[in-house]
């Protein structure tokens, strides 16, 4: 479905796209406060509201990155201040694990940022968003969907070649020479 929707806007040069998961009690409210206080900041972050940072499933982060986000921002209450006692700790623990995983996948650690922002810290929302946009602008696009497309293309090409070989074998013709590498262990 994603490919069928195109907003009627002029296509400019690449700008970071960031998905944010903010907890309802602290960071979402802080973002509201930034709004009420008219603290101008970069327009690259799209906020999704959850009740608690503890609700942030690592799959949400992976989904966002694979769907084309260049970074993910998670905002929760400060330690000790969680509206639900300790959801933010749970989030922190998961985040640590996820970061290791993402590092293995070659995704820069800066692309997933966890911040504790209280309801009073509108200024911090502004600062963190601006900082993150700057960092990601420097890192450049993550481009996982494009990579997927590339891999898909390679895969189908490979499949095509394989089936072509198979056809050749089946047809009794000389097989196409396929270069094989000998790997010495």
């Amino acid at each position: 479905m994603a490919n069928t929707i195109q907003p009627p806007l002029p296509d400019g040069k690449w700008k970071p796209r960031i998905v944010a998961f903010f907890c309802n009690w602290c960071t979402y409210t802080a973002a509201d406060l930034a709004g009420v206080s008219r603290m101008k900041h970069a327009a690259n972050v799209r906020i999704i509201r959850l009740m608690c940072s503890g609700r942030v499933d690592p799959q949400f982060i992976i989904a966002a990155l694979t769907k084309g986000a260049d970074a993910v921002l998670i905002g929760g209450c400060h330690p000790n201040d969680c509206h639900y006692s300790e959801g933010n700790y749970k989030c922190l623990r998961r985040n640590q694990m996820l970061k290791r995983m993402l590092a293995d996948m070659g995704i820069e650690p800066e692309r997933v940022r966890l911040e504790w922002i209280s309801a009073a810290e509108g200024e911090k929302v502004k600062r963190v968003i601006n900082e993150l946009v700057e960092t990601i602008s420097r890192l450049g696009p993550l481009g996982i969907p494009q990579k997927f497309e590339e891999w898909d293309r390679e895969m189908s090409e490979l499949t095509r070649q394989m089936s072509k070989q198979q056809e050749a074998v089946d047809g009794g013709e000389t097989p196409v020479a396929v270069k094989t590498e000998v790997i010495h262990v």
Partner: peptide, 16 residues
């Protein structure tokens, strides 16, 4: 806050 709801929201914010 069902998974399906949030995944759709993620798709939605990124679908441009």
């Amino acid at each position: 806050f069902e998974d399906a709801e949030i995944f759709s929201e993620i798709d939605g914010v990124l679908a441009d």
